[in-house]
């Protein structure tokens, strides 16, 4: 029986001061090693869901289990440690730190996680070499590039740096929040292929969120966010098995 890596139950969330909940999810599971695609319109609350899963936000009610640990029962500091150790995150705008070089951006997560630092060291000897290894996989290891300020990189190069930053220290869960929204079709496909390859190698689970229906094809499973979120659809929770495209 496949093992759940993320499991949400009877989850409700509302921003402070908002009368109606933004999210009302009866049940949502992600399997270990799965590559899951969640499609939803802009502003529907997909990023908020990712914030909850990563333990940055806390729900009004319900439970969030990740790697068999209940995030609800953790203190804020424990959730922060947990996120630093187990999550790699790629943002819509890549969100690289503009005043850091390529190498510094990539190694930044190791600053907040001993576990990821140790994994990097055990794999490549040190954080820098692990960052270089990942960048090399992404065709970004050129010495003229790695010390450049990230603001001088092309969009394509920035994506790859963002991917390397999320992957360093082999986190168990990779979250991607609309990472391809500013790319053309060729680049989108190449980027998703790259993510799949890296996840395959590290055994990471990929939770990929986008508004673009055209991206769902290569994923193990795809779901419509509005069907998952009762607050948006007003309907009963959907049967998850009906969303599975490939198994």
């Amino acid at each position: 029986m496949p093992e759940h890596i993320i499991s949400l139950n009877r989850l409700r969330f509302a921003w402070h001061g908002q009368p109606k909940p933004l999210l009302d999810i009866d049940s949502f599971d992600v399997m270990r090693g799965e590559r899951l695609f969640v499609r939803g319109a802009s502003g529907s609350g997909k990023s908020t869901l990712l914030g909850l899963v990563a333990g940055v936000l806390t729900p009004l009610s319900g439970t969030i289990e990740v790697l068999d640990q209940r995030l609800n029962e953790m203190t804020a500091a424990e959730r922060d440690h947990f996120r630093a150790h187990h999550f790699g995150i790629i943002f819509q705008q890549f969100n690289l730190i503009p005043y850091l070089s390529v190498i510094e951006n990539v190694t930044l997560p190791c600053q907040f996680s001993d576990q990821r630092r140790r994994k990097s060291i055990s794999r490549s000897g040190n954080q820098r070499d692990e960052a270089l290894r990942l960048l090399e996989h992404l065709d970004m290891a050129d010495s003229s590039v790695i010390h450049k300020p990230v603001t001088e990189l092309s969009v394509g190069q920035q994506q790859r740096v963002a991917a390397a930053r999320a992957l360093i220290g082999s986190p168990e869960i990779l979250i991607a929040d609309e990472p391809t929204s500013s790319m053309d079709a060729d680049r989108r496909a190449a980027f998703i292929e790259l993510l799949f390859r890296e996840c395959e190698e590290t055994g990471s689970t990929l939770l990929f969120v986008s508004h673009d229906q055209g991206l769902r094809e290569p994923f193990d499973r795809a779901i419509e966010f509005d069907q998952l979120n009762r607050a948006a659809s007003g309907s009963q929770p959907i049967d998850r098995s009906s969303d599975r495209i490939t198994s």
Binding site: A54, V56, A77, A84, I89, N95, P109, S113
Partner: peptide, 16 residues
């Protein structure tokens, strides 16, 4: 705020 949100997502604690 964006810079801090990025750091938070990477594991920085509010204390950081």
């Amino acid at each position: 705020r964006r810079e801090m949100a990025i750091l938070r997502a990477l594991g920085a604690r509010p204390g950081h």
